[in-house]
């Protein structure tokens, strides 16, 4: 699901396993709770250990982007595995300028 760590204004969310419509709302509430209490300058979504993701993951990323932007922070999406490249390309998330 997700491991969250905070240091020097950066909240890192290390996502793992499968992200679908069943699991996405739980990840969302964990990240949003920490974002609201810590107000990080940057939210880093790390996809290194994600083995599967459907469009629920895209909704999750877009929702967190809106959330952190409203709180005055920025977002970075890192370590996208090759198996997820296709859905990221299709989603148009690249145009948000958050992919590192």
């Amino acid at each position: 699901m997700v491991d969250l760590t905070y240091s020097n204004g950066a909240l890192t969310a290390r996502l793992y396993g499968e992200i679908d419509h069943h699991i996405a709302p739980r990840i969302r509430s964990e990240i949003d709770m920490k974002c609201e209490s810590l107000r990080p300058a940057v939210l880093i979504l790390d996809f290194k250990a994600v083995s599967f993701m459907d469009s629920s993951g895209i909704g999750l990323i877009m929702g967190r982007y809106r959330c952190i932007t409203l709180l005055g922070g920025r977002m970075e999406v890192v370590n996208i595995p090759p198996t997820l490249a296709k859905i990221f390309t299709l989603s148009g998330i690249e145009s948000l300028g958050v992919m590192k």
Binding site: P25, S55, S56, G59
Partner: peptide, 11 residues
């Protein structure tokens, strides 16, 4: 209204 991306059929 539940943060769906609307990409299901496109995918």
């Amino acid at each position: 209204t539940d943060e769906r991306a609307g990409l299901g059929f496109a995918v």
